[in-house]
Amino acid sequence: MAGIASKHLIRIEDLTVDEIYSVLENAATFKEINTRTIKKLPTLRGRTIINMFLEPSTRTRSSFELAEKRLSADSLNFSASSSATVKGESLLDTAETFDAMKIDMVIVRHRYGGSPWILAEAMDAHIINGGDGIHQHPTQTLLDLFTIQEAKGRIAGLTVGIVGDIYHSRVAGSLAPALKMMGARPICIAPPSYQPDVPEALGAEVSHSLDEALPDLDVVYLLRIQGERAQGLSVPSLREYATVYGMNQWRMDNLMKPDAIIMHPGPMNRGVEITPEVIADSRSLVLDQVNAGVAVRMAVMYQMLGGEGDVATAAR
């Protein structure tokens, strides 16, 4: 079994390109297992995993929980406000408390960038970043890469447009550098007010026009636009955003490459960044991404915790 050299997965750069490919390969096996009637494997039996979600999350948390259950790990959920002042206990104290309980792995979702490092430094456990502030969300990126590879047969050489509030997007914060690592060409498509401070730091090119960029794209990756961040300071309104940057039937028919794919990390704002017709189109792979999420997370946990036997054996 191919392991993962880094103890933690906090940034996508913690993985090498070879490790990313090995995750995708193992995920394909797990994906097949997830189609069986009995989906449970004994590989992480006896291992303890905490899902520490300090910010609301539905899909990422469910996806991790399912992955843990299917690998037979013992898991428990811990939620709280991420603000130390509200919670009354600092993240460091929480980390030390759990460390004393001898945990093998922590999945952490947190409101502030870099917070998983506090756990990494205070605990013996492996830490997987389930999304930290506006920083990164590496397992989302792995499932995105998996989906792209399945649909397009490759990642290298593809042009991928990431469209939306990139500045505030931890999804983009991992996806753009990962695409660059894998030999693809990421383009941040957004008005300047939604662009990262330095897009080149993510390995990405910049475009202010979806209409200009769209004909070149092999993958159209739409980000969720949060209503409170589209009320006049960064963009005038959701309505205007939808007009200029929203993916709709007309753009799909007239500007998009016929074989391009459309992705979205969810949850979607129907009618804002993506219209219902686009969601319903066969080239929209939003549910494939969700499906891949469980398999990819199984692969990551399996490789980081060094489950018994190799996946192929486990799968037989």
């Binding site: 960038g113 502030g133 506006i134 920083h135 990262p196 401070d197 330095v198 993510l202």
Partner: peptide, 13 residues
Amino acid sequence: NEGLVSTRLGLPG
């Protein structure tokens, strides 16, 4: 500071 580091670390600059 707003710049490379704010982007790389995902911190408001």
